[in-house]
Amino acid sequence: MNGANMMMLTFSARSENESFARVAVAAFVSQLDPTMEELNDLKTAVSEAVTNAIIHGYDGDPDGMVTIEVAIEGDTVSIVVIDKGRGIEDLELARQPLYTSKPELERSGMGFTIMENFMDRFEVSSEPGQGTQIAMTKRIESKKRCTIKRIGVGPHGCRLET
């Protein structure tokens, strides 16, 4: 196997960049030919991590910068989302479903639970006052299962390589 195929993206912590982040990651990962569902899982996880960086990490301060690193190695996508914001005091508490430190902003406290459910592996590391890093991976099954042959394929555009 050749080394990982990587990309990195750094952008202002502004809410209008949330959709940009989702689309950019999806476009990069599309070379693995993911299913719509896999792509949606990745987009949702990215959206959660980036939104957290903006709302919690930087408390809405648009001068903060969010970095996303994506690596494709074989059929596995690794995504790291980094902020240099306030950090998390109590990681165990923060990861509990329905826990939110900002109920007044109508947060539901589901972000971490969603990332955990939509990705295969999920890790948070954080240092109060230093920032937070989310690392997640997901295996894209579609490439393994079916290699595209453009002629005479079914509705899903793929079939097993013989």
Partner: peptide
Amino acid sequence: QFMDSSGLGVILG
């Protein structure tokens, strides 16, 4: 086409 936890929050509200 797309929704994340922010959608859950606004619906719940």
